[in-house]
Each structure stands twice: as C-alpha cells, then as structure tokens.
Write a protein that binds this DNA or RNA. Structure first.
Lengths: 247, 247
DNA sequence: GAGTGGTCTAGACCACCAG
DNA sequence: TGGTGGTCTAGACCACTCC
C-alpha cells in the first residue's frame, strides 16, 4: 500500500518527456490505491531531488495531475490526493464506444450513405456555402435488435472516404482516426424534444415520445470543422454523464 | 483591427501574475477580433522580449490560451488563433447564471425548504445512511412568468444555512460560495423523459411532454459530497451546450 | 539551414499557512 | 519562524517543419 517516490523509474533517453513519465506513474499509483485518497505528497523540492529532477519539471508533473483533478495543491499546506471516486474526464467519445464497453453488443444499420447538397444547418456548422456537396450518412443504432438511436452525420467531401462496412464495423470516429483526422475540440448541444412521426418510426416508438438529442460539431487543430452530427436517442435508453473538474 | 504586443500593459506590482495578465489581454484581443481567427502570433522569443518577460513566462501565458482552445501551437510552424467561434468552456454553472447572462430576468419561487429524512437516491449520492436528516429544497425557475424548470436539491445538514431570501436573490451556488463551500468537481447525468402529471403541473405543461433532466453531485477538494441536485426542465425552453477541448 | 515550439535546468523571491 | 506552493528569470539543448 505504501508508495515511495524512488520507485519511479525515469528514462532520460525516451522521447516521452520526463514530467509526463512522472505524472503517469503518479496517476497509476493513485488509481491503484498505492497513493491513498487524502494522502499527502512530499513537497516539491524533496520529490524533485529524489528523482534527480529540477523543481519546475516536478511541478509540471504535479500540475498535470492537479488539472486532471487527481490532487489538490494548497499553498503553505502541501499537495494531497483528492478523495472523490469518479474521475472520468470529459472526452470525445462515440455512442458506439459507450455501448461496446457496456457489453451491450451494439449493432449499426446504415440507412443512407452518399454525397448530398448540404442543408442549411449543415452549411452553417461546417462553414461551407449552402448547397456545397457534403458526405452524408444516416445510421441506426440497435442493441438487442431494438433501435436506440438515429445518427445523421455530415463531413466535407474531400476529407474522408468511408464505406458501409467501415461504419458497421468500427464507427465513424474510428474511421476518422484511421484517416488521420484528429478532432481537437468539439461543441455539443444536448436537448430534448418530442418525436415526430418519422422519428418515432425509426425508433420503433410512438409519436410524441421523448427524445434526447445532440448536435455536435468537431474541429481539428486549426479550427477547421471536420464533422457535424445531428443525433437523436430514445430517451428511455440513453443518458449522458460528464465529470467536470475545476472552477 | 491590427494588434501589437506592445499594447499589452504589465503591472509588475500587481498581485495578478504576469503570465495571467498577458493571457487575459490576448484572450480579450481574440474575443474582440483584434487577433483575427487564423492569425499567426509572433514567436515566443520575440513576444517575450517585447514585453520584457522571460520566455517561460510568455510560454505559460500562451499555454493557458492553448488549454482553453483559443490558439494552437505547432512545432516548427508557430502559434495561430483557432478558427472555431464557440469557445464556452465546460464549467460548473447554474441555470440561474445562464439565464441572468442571457438577460432573461429569471425569477425563483421557493416551493419548499427544510430538513427531511434523506430519500434513497439522495443517501446514495451524498454517501449518507438512509434516513439521515438532510437540508432539502424545491425551487421553481420562471422567465417572463413562465415556469421553466423545477430544481430539487439536497445537502448534508451541517454544511449550510440558507433562507428563502438567499435562494430567491442569488441562487444556491452563490450562497454556497459565500459560506466557503467550494465545489471542486461534479458529475452530472443528462437525460430526457416524459413528464408525469405532477411534473407537468409544476411546469404548466401537459402530461407526457418531453423533459430534459439533470442529476448532479458536487464534491469539494477532499472529495466530500457537498450537494445533490435532481432537476427537470421544460424541453422546449432549455438545452445544454458544452465545449470540449482535447483528446 | 533557419526558424519554430517543446523540454529542462538551477537558481531566486514571494505569499500563504501553521506552529 | 519555518515550510509550503506560486511565480519568475536566463539561459540551454532538442525535435520538428519548411525552404
């Protein structure tokens, strides 16, 4: 259960930065309970000395953990491991990942895939002139053969090639990563509304049933819009959980 | 429209850190369009020299902006202002704040306030034995005299004293801050469902109308649960927008 | 090769908290 | 008064990108 800083092995020839090596090791120790919740870390100077690092480098490692919510620093007091249990960070994940990790054997049915002239709301999100051709897809998510959600996604045409098989096998985000498209930030809006007749039909639900909806636009490094998604979920079968740290 | 680093005035006697003064000024410049999207910043050395700062301090200012998603740094290339427009960070905010900043003149009606034995779900969220007395409150949010939401919140009894006036004047989170309770992290679950008859009555809506719901548990520094909230919103009047940066 | 950001060092002084 | 984290400096070397 104990933990001593000496057990952190540093590889100075690794391309992985030293501060990151330290941070990773400390994160592991916290996750594994070696550093118990409430435990106080040694002060920065001692830790730095013991690891043969300068204080700024050690501080950077600790700062990384503080940003992620693992530890709290208090001037004059010291640095302590935070007690809260849930640490799932906000991240860009797809419903497919969520379902897969929940062991629900999700299935995807591709309802449509092709090039279309971009509708108004898509043009706005992707910052393209209205009517520009965009790659469009509509998918239905099912678990245990029950439809759970309908996902409509749009991408600028030149960014990605994608097949029915890609979408049914791995999901859009995995395909985008394969193609070197790395989402850097995203804005999503979550809301609710009553299902229209057409929406209800796609979900095997009745008209007026509550839907959870999400619109998301993803951007790359340079702020170029990569993808716009307009999704709706059967309310009884889905929820969104986020963990917020800070402020 | 132009922007020159020289226009950043530093106060070395201020208790506000230099890196933060610089970051704030740059953030303003970006928000105001003085630094246009896509614009390239001067390199770190030049900026540091021009402001009379060391490079690490200048780097820290830029790093702060990069974390917030305002700029992107690319090795060998430079630092550029990101093109996406929406930058609202994920944060712990209350509906009251949201409405106030939207200029909607929100009003709060306190429906109930007192000590009750904690119901099952509250006990679980706050990690208290079932039946423990907890501070309980039920509030209705209105804008333009239309009910928008119903908020039920529960706190351990010994943490906070709160009056009807506190709740109607400033909101629960403001009162908690006054009392020195500083939420450090929170987990929230957002979902949707159809309104029951009782819920519909409180919102002036019909039974079965779609609701957006949120459950939130807030924790302090040490991971103690501070507050549990169970809220529902008229779906037509509310949505949640988050901006995610990273990964 | 020239220019950029990424990392790291070895110091220094300060503000805050506890005893 | 002593210990802690918070800030800041003035350098150094490296990895990467572009020409």
């Amino acid at each position: 259960m104990g933990f001593s800083a000496e057990s952190i092995l540093l590889d100075r020839n690794s391309p992985i930065p030293l501060y990151y090596q330290v941070a990773q090791r400390l994160e592991q120790a916290i996750e594994a309970g070696e550093l118990a919740p409430g435990a106080q870390l040694d002060n920065e100077i001692q830790l730095a000395d013991r690891l043969g690092l300068s204080r700024p480098t050690m501080r950077r490692a600790i700062g990384y953990l503080a940003d992620k919510g693992y530890v709290v620093r208090q001037r004059g007091i010291g640095t302590t491991v935070v007690r809260s249990r849930v640490r799932r960070p906000v991240a860009l994940t797809s419903l497919y990942d969520d379902l897969a990790s929940a062991g629900q054997r999700p299935r995807t049915r591709v309802l449509a895939l092709g090039i279309v002239e971009s509708p108004h709301e898509v043009s706005e999100a992707l910052e393209l002139p209205e009517g520009t051709p965009v790659l469009s897809m509509e998918r239905q998510r099912l678990a245990a053969d029950e439809p759970l959600a309908v996902l409509r996604n749009y991408l600028p045409v030149d960014l990605l090639e994608v097949t029915h098989e890609d979408l049914e096998r791995t999901g859009l985000y995995a395909r985008m990563r394969e193609a070197g498209l790395r989402p850097h930030s995203a804005t999503q809006t979550i809301a609710a509304r009553a299902a229209s007749a057409a929406e209800a039909r796609l979900l095997g639900d009745r008209r007026g049933a509550p839907l959870l909806t999400m619109q998301r636009t993803s951007y790359d490094d340079r702020g170029r819009a990569l993808e716009y998604g307009d999704h709706f979920y059967k309310a009884s079968a889905y929820s969104v959980t986020v963990t917020l740290v800070g402020a």
